[in-house]
């Protein structure tokens, strides 16, 4: 299981809805850096944040996030 990582379509969903990173961050109640690091797969969000992000982008978590392989070791 440890060789699986977390990918996401956050940037695609965000731009599709015409939101900047800052606007999405404001909507979700986190910093722009958090959105930036999640988008770039540097930071793995908690389940709660993933759900809130999905809600803000009017989609579901499964559409927003997906499992990748192999696991990237430079995650924060």
């Amino acid at each position: 299981m440890n060789d699986r990582g977390l990918g996401n379509h956050l940037r695609a969903f965000r731009t599709e809805r015409g939101l900047t990173q800052a606007e999405l961050a404001q909507k979700v109640g986190v910093s722009r850096k958090t959105v930036n690091t999640v988008e770039n797969s540097v930071f793995i969000p908690s389940t709660l944040l993933a759900l809130v992000l999905a809600e803000a982008l009017e989609t579901n978590v499964e559409s927003l996030f997906f499992l990748t392989s192999p696991f990237r070791s430079d995650k924060i």
């Binding site: 910093s31 958090t34 690091t37 908690s46």
Partner: peptide, 11 residues
């Protein structure tokens, strides 16, 4: 107010 943000917690 920002200390609870999980990115900062991970930092």
């Amino acid at each position: 107010y920002i200390y609870d943000e999980e990115l900062i917690q991970s930092f």
